[in-house]
Design a protein around this nucleic acid. Structure first.
Lengths: 223, 223
DNA sequence: CATTTGCGGATTGTCAACAATCCTGCAATG
DNA sequence: CATTGCAGGATTGTTGACAATCCGCAAATG
């Protein structure tokens, strides 16, 4: 065989994958509001494909949990009530805590560097006052955290959870808070990991999620 | 409306769901060995359905991560190499630890009772020497643990992980160890939760997973 | 007037056939 | 002898059409 062929394998994305991704983004950023019915024939026409591939994409989204299927009725964008949001952040705490533990156990220093960089990015976004950028940097931090753990399964789980998180943020735009605090919370997580302090990590993640939850649910209708 | 109609709502399971479940079980218990190709036409004929529903079932399994899809080539039962197994148990530790934490935080006592019952079931299976029953009771314990946490997302994640766990156990039948130790490890987890001792819980789960991993990987080809 | 009953429209569920793609083996070629 | 080109067979990818199911609404009924 040729010694280290410098080409990367071509991989054409399947139609269903493309559709899945597009729909997912639409749901994430609110183009497809929660509760919206996703009619197969309509969407198939929009994407310019048959109903077959589209149905496959739907199956994936259903299995991901961001689309709800009512048999013989239709598919709907899942709505997140208060309990669901609570559960979402519980699950996030679980995954991100585990990721932090793995980093503490295995890291050679690169993970901590990446986390501090992510914090710095948040910091500069906070200073310039760009809230959209700050929000992106926020999510990016958590992505870095879980990616750096090296666990594919944690990454997969987290990806799904982040889609739902983005759904929440999109639905409730305008829940501002002091950007400095926001940065500080993340820095606390990063430094807990850097210090290898497990208990501090647990508390940092938990309180971070609790803060976010509190912020989200206070704006929701209290009914 | 009639006062409390004594009938429960009928809900027919979709064909894709039935097929998904059957295939999943087949994979779990080794009827479909890792690496096996799952040909659509063949399976469709076996199930007596068209390829449409079967493809949908496949999509679900792919998204669950227990079936691998090679475009234009086919679908294959996913094989678990050493790193995958390590990652699997890492993820399990993450989920079950989180479940335990939730129980410590929220439980009214019923969860602890259920866990102790599960331990008792293991104990009696260990005493009578029925290894199959012991294995079932083992898995049942972990199911109870996560179910009692009350988090739907943790449950969903765990379900997938347990399918893969069962795959491992099926593939490597005959990795025996002292049943008493096996029971003891679970009891340690249950009692850590009962005592509300977080650090003990973390260590109990971690060492339990580490034991299981060690047992699994020692029998694998060391290549 | 309240309840039931049947119809119309729309959507999902299923199917069988067609097109595109890929692997296998063999023969042709240098 | 290694490589290339080319059918043959098989499998997946896609499509459009048909059947089954469900909802909403209006007419019929007591």
């Amino acid at each position: 065989m040729p010694p280290t062929p410098p080409f990367q394998r071509v991989h054409r994305e399947s139609t269903a994958s493309v559709i899945t991704r597009q729909l997912r983004e639409g749901i994430m950023y609110g183009t497809l509001a929660p509760g919206t019915q996703l009619t197969e024939s309509g969407l198939a026409a929009e994407f310019g494909v048959s109903r077959g591939p589209l149905r496959e994409a739907m199956q994936r989204l259903v299995q991901e949990g961001i689309v709800r299927s009512e048999p013989n009725r239709g598919l709907f964008v899942k709505e997140l009530d208060e309990d669901e949001i609570r559960d979402l952040y519980t699950a996030r705490a679980a995954v991100e805590t585990a990721a932090g533990r793995l980093i503490i156990r295995d890291d050679d220093g690169s993970a901590v560097t990446a986390l501090r960089q992510a914090c710095a990015a948040m910091q500069s976004a906070a200073e310039t006052g760009e809230l959209a950028a700050l929000s992106d940097a926020d999510l990016h931090f958590h992505e870095v955290l879980v990616t750096a753990s090296g666990s594919r399964r944690l990454q997969r789980m987290h990806q799904t959870l982040m889609v739902e998180t983005r759904m929440c943020l999109t639905a409730l735009q305008g829940t501002y808070r002091a950007p400095e605090d926001q940065v500080a919370e993340h820095r606390r997580i990063a430094e807990a990991i850097a210090a290898g302090d497990l208990n501090e990590l647990l508390q940092a993640v938990e309180s971070h999620m609790y803060e976010a939850l509190d912020r989200l649910l206070s704006t929701t209708e209290p009914a």
